[in-house]
């Protein structure tokens, strides 16, 4: 019998974090201006979760990594070209909107159903990975909701490290206040882990991994089931870019000594 983990990573696409975002009204509710034209990436925290999953799977024989993504098929396809070269995984895709204004409860219901429908799912080996934050909605909400729907009692958020121990137990480091980690020990799967950025570097592009992944990714995208999630019963009263404009005093031609004096005075003020 296999002893490895079944790691399911939940993650979808978000606009490339450096892009300028502006809200726009669409018939489906609030969205982003030029949303489909913006370059997209796998949500950075979900991407870390995926890399950690691959790393854990590589260290734990018999493990398997599945990326479960609910997003617009065309964008998923595009993002998979970048992600597919990084680490081995299988894709399960749901075709629906991935914007930040969609309701996480609706998304979670779809994702939970998709996890339950995974062939050969074994709860005793299931680790549900995702980001503890997201560049769209934020705060690991969807992941927690899916965990609850799957009745997984052990959840962790802000995870920077998972170390497997003997007997299926593992140690987890979670970020807490003050730049510190809380250390916990969990008796074993199933568990939910919402990842912070961890400590792994971004994996390199590997053409062989890409070739192998893509043979399954394209068929997975082709059979992506529609998941028309919406904004639920949320009534959006206003959506705006916050006004943060300040009157900046620009100080040129001041000597470093004088700048330093001014700064020290400023630091000392209450």
């Amino acid at each position: 019998m296999s002893t490895g983990y079944q790691i399911v990573v939940l993650g979808s696409v978000v606009p490339d974090p450096l892009q300028t975002l502006e809200p726009a009204q669409t018939p489906q509710g609030p969205g982003l201006k030029n949303e489909l034209m913006l370059p997209h990436v796998l949500d950075p925290w979900a991407a870390h979760a995926l890399y950690e999953a691959a790393n854990l799977a590589a260290r734990t024989p018999g493990s398997k990594v599945t990326l479960l993504s609910l997003g617009p098929k065309a964008k998923l396809q595009q993002v998979m070209m970048a992600v597919g070269q990084r680490v081995p995984f299988e894709l399960v895709a749901l075709d629906g909107p991935a914007g930040g204004f969609t309701d996480p409860h609706e998304v979670a219901a779809r994702l939970a159903d998709a996890v339950k429908a995974l062939p050969g799912l074994d709860r005793s080996r299931l680790l549900l990975f995702g980001g503890w934050e997201s560049a769209s909605r934020g705060a690991g909400v969807t992941l927690q909701l899916v965990g609850e729907r799957l009745e997984i009692p052990d959840q962790f958020q802000g995870v920077d490290q998972l170390t497997p121990g003997p007997d299926g137990a593992f140690e987890v480091l979670e970020r807490v206040e003050g730049g510190r980690h809380q250390v916990s020990s969990c008796a074993g799967a199933p568990a939910v882990l919402g990842w912070a950025t961890g400590s792994l570097g971004e994996p390199k592009n590997n053409p062989q991994v890409g070739m192998a992944n893509m043979r399954a990714i394209m068929p997975a995208l082709q059979k992506a089931a529609p998941a028309p999630v919406g904004t639920g019963r949320v009534e959006y009263l206003s959506v705006a870019v916050p006004r943060t404009q300040r009157e900046t005093r620009i100080v040129k031609d001041m000597s470093p000594d004088d700048v330093a004096r001014e700064l020290v005075e400023w630091i000392a003020q209450d």
Binding site: V14, P15, P17, L21, P23, P30, L32, G100, F101, E133, S134, A135, S136, R137, G138, Y236, L237, S238, V239, A240, V241, P242
Partner: peptide, 9 residues
């Protein structure tokens, strides 16, 4: 929303 870049009521 969007990591402190858009706020909604």
């Amino acid at each position: 929303f969007y990591k402190q870049r858009i706020e909604a009521k």
